[in-house]
């Protein structure tokens, strides 16, 4: 027995399919429009912001520079005047204003190197980090404390007092050595000219023992 209604409906199957296609295409027009965010999700950005993983300490950075670690680049986000006054060795100057330029993105948006951002403190570097992280750039680090911290810890480290633990002294000697690498001179590290006193050796005269006369024996 042929189900006539079904047969009639099936004869229309291509019309139905075509209508579905047209309806689906028209549905696209009715979708509410919204502007898409570029880069990472807002929630992800928030969790990244609270994470301390992005910070690199001055000691770590100094260690990397001294060991000539090739895996990172230093980006100075201050303006070019203060960059010319002082900067870290081999740093690249990308002022915060120009951080979205195409030239800057060649340095920032890549997978090969870690990017270490710094400014006078970590304030502007954090802002730069926030912008770049929002755009989905990878491997971004921020120098904790910036150049000020660098000066206080590496260039001019405070001497530990005697009641401090041994680790403090180790850290101090590391920082001191690092600062010498970066060109700081210490008075006590300069080898003093030692004036040798000419000391005459006292000649001890050894009196020869007089030979004993042989005594009688066996």
């Amino acid at each position: 027995m042929i189900n006539r209604k079904l047969a009639k409906f099936l004869s229309l199957q291509y019309v139905v399919l075509a209508l579905i296609l047209i309806l689906a295409a028209a549905g696209l027009l009715l979708l509410p429009k919204y502007v898409k965010h570029e880069g990472i999700d807002t929630k992800e950005l928030l969790s990244n912001t609270f994470s301390n993983e992005r910070y690199i300490s001055t000691d770590e950075l100094a260690n990397n520079i001294v060991n000539q670690d090739p895996s990172f680049i230093l980006i100075d986000v201050r303006d070019s005047i203060s960059f010319k006054k002082n900067s870290l060795p081999n740093a690249i100057n990308i002022p915060l204003k120009k951080i979205l330029n195409e030239e800057a993105s060649a340095y920032l948006d890549q997978d090969q190197f870690d990017v270490v951002l710094y400014s006078n403190t970590n304030f502007y570097a954090d802002q730069a980090w926030m912008l770049c992280n929002r755009l989905g750039y990878k491997n971004l680090r921020v120098l904790k404390g910036g150049i000020n911290e660098w000066f206080h810890t590496i260039i001019n480290p405070t001497k530990p007092t005697e009641n401090m633990p041994a680790t403090a002294f180790e850290l101090y000697s590391f920082r001191k050595a690092a600062s010498m690498y970066f060109g700081v001179a210490y008075l006590d590290a300069i080898p003093k000219k030692v004036v040798k006193k000419v000391v005459r050796k006292k000649v001890k005269t050894v009196k020869k023992k007089k030979k004993k006369k042989p005594e009688g024996g066996c």
Partner: peptide, 16 residues
């Protein structure tokens, strides 16, 4: 793109 696709779909169905 949405208008274009609607037009393209209708064009396709007419072509069929």
């Amino acid at each position: 793109p949405f208008w274009f696709i609607l037009f393209f779909t209708i064009f396709g169905v007419v072509a069929f």
